[in-house]
Nucleic acid binder design. Structure first.
Lengths: 140, 140
DNA sequence: GCCAGATTTGAGAATAAGTCTCATTATCTG
DNA sequence: CAGATAATGAGACTTATTCTCAAATCTGGC
């Protein structure tokens, strides 16, 4: 079962009716691997109102179907939570380039911490900041 | 040399003059271990203008003397970067409680990833989200 | 100590992201 | 199909952050 189907199913289980606008937002998110901002979704889905975009994102986030990723400055990005595509982000402080990466060791360390705390950990999010190759060479 | 002294020194090296308002912001940040929002600083320092608070935060962040931590929803938090007090955050999704933690294994895994990428990594930031003990028991 | 020139600062206007309201439309249940 | 309820869009509204600009403050050279 792919992410879109899973999302649809869990939304239904959570007691939501199926509306066309929410479905469009889910479909858009299903197509994107990495982070998209709320306003970008709003822009790309002309027929869908801003309020609906934010509402849908909120519902999906509550169900841990998407995750807010706290990259760069101004606005938050959202991306689907998908075990197969789990990853984190490298952000270039100079040009804003967003580059995904993943690491088994890192996941294990996080897993270990999660069990050590008295919190029930549901999600995590790692951001590395620095300078991308292009910007590095440009400075040098 | 403590953080405040270091910050003052590096600001000077970066070509900044020393103004009273910026000093107040630096002093406030020096006192706080964990994240403070820009507006909280603005509120606590009545004599300092909002613009100055944001400007100072921007300068300090650029010098990696503070780090923006992307906790909860609406506003960003800032905290000093201090090798001795380096830590990450657990956020309760129910009540917003922010709890710091640190882990040597986690740092090592991040260190390893940093070297594997072609980015020059200057900083990192890990957020675990979940439910704190109080909220867990309240639900149960 | 005082001046010139450059930086810092505060107040408030201006933006931009995100939230809320409410009348309308669409879904679901029976 | 009808009623009850959830979903939706438009746009007003709130809140965080940025910008503008004139006044205050610094610093180095006299």
């Amino acid at each position: 079962m792919n992410w879109a189907e899973q999302a649809t199913q869990r939304l239904e289980q959570a007691g939501h009716r199926s509306g066309g606008s929410r479905r469009k937002v889910v479909e858009l998110l299903a197509k994107e691997r990495c982070a998209v901002t709320a306003l970008e979704i709003d822009r790309r889905l002309e027929s869908v109102g801003r309020a609906t975009v934010y509402r849908t994102l909120e519902q999906l986030e509550k169900l841990h179907l998407i995750q807010r990723v706290q990259i760069g400055g101004d606005s938050a990005g959202y991306e689907r939570v998908d075990a197969e595509a789990h990853h984190h982000h490298l952000v270039c402080e100079a040009c804003g380039l967003l580059s995904p990466f993943s690491s088994k060791d890192l996941e294990e360390a996080i897993e270990a911490v999660s069990h050590q705390t008295d919190f029930t950990v549901a999600a995590h999010d790692v951001v590395l900041r620095g300078t991308c190759p292009s910007c590095s060479s440009r400075d040098a």
